[in-house]
């Protein structure tokens, strides 16, 4: 019985990050990389995967060491752990994917202060076991990644006529350059939030009927 409950909660912890507790669309966390790097799908994807790595690794470590850290110093210790993994990602990108590393620039180090990561470490990994913490981290960070891809997709298609660098809209379509600029980022995300809210409302009405 207990095992069944566990399995169920693993599923729940994983899936919730995609919709119900989507870090960007519901919790409004990690906005700064969300808006800044989603000028193209590949940038969004790279940023998302970097966050998947950092969040999963730091959740793992935090949930292992949570019992030996005095409460008063937990935040500084968490931050050091997170910054360590972020530096690793940064060095890795510089060593193997120089062009992407240049495109993302200072937004890779800014993962350190991405509230999603500290938030998950504080709210989940510091209280729960190793396995659940990792599952939670994976769910939330993949939810984050997918949202980045959607946002990057919309902006790249409308702003550059391409998707993953491949042309998808014909020459007849004049690219909306504003989509690549800061205003496009804000407005697209705002509309995306609106879409999610109205879908949620529909679902709720359906259920109550």
């Amino acid at each position: 019985m207990a095992a069944k409950d566990d399995r169920k909660s693993v599923g729940v912890e994983f899936v919730k990050g995609f919709w119900k507790e989507n870090p960007i669309l519901v919790m409004l966390l990690g906005m700064c990389p969300t808006l800044a790097v989603t000028t193209s799908v590949i940038n969004g994807l790279t940023m998302g995967l970097a966050v998947v790595f950092v969040l999963t690794c730091s959740s793992l470590i935090v949930s292992i060491v949570r019992n030996i850290i005095p409460k008063q110093v937990r935040i500084p210790v968490f931050i050091v752990i997170i910054a360590t993994f972020v530096t690793m990602v940064d060095l890795f990108l510089k060593a193997f994917l120089l062009d992407l590393s240049k495109a993302l620039g200072p937004f890779i180090p800014l993962i350190v202060v991405n509230c999603i990561i500290l938030g998950r470490a504080e709210a989940f990994a510091s209280k729960k076991g190793v396995f659940l913490s990792v599952v939670d981290a994976l769910g939330v960070s993949f939810g984050f990644t997918i949202t980045l891809i959607i946002l990057g997709g919309i902006r790249e298609v409308l702003g550059m006529r391409t998707f993953f660098g491949h042309p998808v809209l014909g020459e007849g379509f004049e690219p909306w350059i504003v989509m690549l600029l800061p205003p496009g980022a804000f407005i697209t995300l705002g509309l995306l939030l609106g879409v999610k809210n109205s879908i949620d409302k529909r679902l709720k009405e359906k259920r109550s009927r």
């Binding site: 500084p76 050091v80 910054a83 530096t87 690793m88 060095l91 890795f92 060593a95």
Partner: peptide, 29 residues
């Protein structure tokens, strides 16, 4: 004292791990 020790410990581990990663990746970079 314990707080101080724990923080120092984590800072040292972090520094050590990073130096190692840097040593490996620096030639590539």
């Amino acid at each position: 004292l314990k707080m101080l020790l724990i923080m120092t410990l984590f800072a040292c581990i972090s520094g050590g791990v990073l130096s190692l990663v840097y040593l490996i990746s620096a030639p590539l970079i």
